[in-house]
Write a protein that binds this DNA or RNA. Structure first.
Lengths: 120, 120, 120, 120
DNA sequence: GTGGTCTAGACCACG
DNA sequence: GTGGTCTAGACCACC
């Protein structure tokens, strides 16, 4: 389930959610994507909104569609690797920019992650 | 200057930008805020948009307005400290959530910051 | 094999493909049409989709069906001549309309065909 | 006004219509595009449908948007030249493919254009 | 006024 | 069942 942020378009958040799933390999190369209607029901949004996210994924060749059969993750592992890198860079860039704006340097960022993030 | 992200309302981005300035102490307790018109001109947006960000800052008591004299950063240092913590937590939470969604653990996050973020 | 255009229904594209075959006389008056299943397999589509194209051809009397024996091209040469003219007109009309919309006149159209189309 | 072909998505037809306008220089570099609502009204379609075509144009950098002010044709003349070439090639390719499928050679295509297309 | 997002609900093509 | 298109109508951010 996604906690939607009201300030960002829902379809963009779904798009990112799906990209993360693929990068995390919850959805692997060639895997069938959840159907538009199914995911819409699960996320409690209109099917059109999910559809929009899927179309964006398709136009960046991250998923492809077989008519009447559903959508599938690309078979191209390189594409997925690129996605992983691009997505990570985007996330880190936003984080580091805002932290720098607040006056944190690299060491302080690491320190703060060490103390606030749970897990190994 | 701000690099605006088309998917987030501009007034929210200006709001965050100003909060970061205050946290960084570019704008200190009691300092005069730039005038709405001036900032609007600098950021190349409509004054209404800046006004909206100021209104939000005022309603969270981060700035206050003296009639005819402009807006000023709160005199309350505790308030600013709270802002610093809240903002940092928000930024870190978003970062760590997305990175976890991608399958990164704490160590990998630190590694990636070490290699991608410039500076000391 | 057909290069399917995703923006046009597949059965329409198959319909046109078959009309063109008949006009070209790859399929002559009275010739047996390929079986629905066979063509479906060759084109890698569902038999229903081919069936739909055949039904359209039949309802315009371009092919007819002998029960248990398959489908056949009409024996009526006039019908085929009409088809040739109609189809050619349709294709030329669409081409010239779009080229005119782009600002090409007749001479420029011919010039462009001369330079881009291969063959004698 | 557009004569819509029922077998092609309306937003694709609007997309092509606008591309042709730009290539023909009815809409020049930097020109304001008709507003989404205005065009929707003129074409008697839902604003969402026009919006979709505009979004496609924007994502291929043919138009750009100024918040609250409207959409504008790119300032980049090279982009428009590319568009002209791509569009022409696409139209010619479809034409020549279908004509070849019907058994016409290059000379016959030219002949047929000479006799059927009006104008100089 | 401008573009942009979203919902509810319908219909289509394809398997 | 699948994805894809379209409408009617609402609400938002921005100028």
């Amino acid at each position: 389930m996604i906690e939607f942020d009201n300030n960002i378009p829902v379809y963009i958040q779904i798009l990112n959610f799906l990209k993360e799933k693929i990068v995390k390999r919850d959805l692997k190369e060639g895997d069938k994507m959840p159907s538009v209607r199914e995911l819409a029901k699960e996320l409690k949004v209109n099917p059109n909104t999910v559809q929009r996210a899927y179309k964006d994924l398709e136009s960046s060749n991250i998923i492809f569609t077989k008519r009447g059969m559903g959508s599938f993750v690309t078979e191209d592992k390189l594409k997925i690797n690129d996605l992983r890198e691009d997505l990570a860079k985007e996330i880190i860039l936003e984080f580091s920019t805002r932290m720098k704006n607040m006056g944190f340097n690299k060491e302080e960022m690491i320190e703060v992650i060490n103390s606030f993030v749970e897990g190994d």
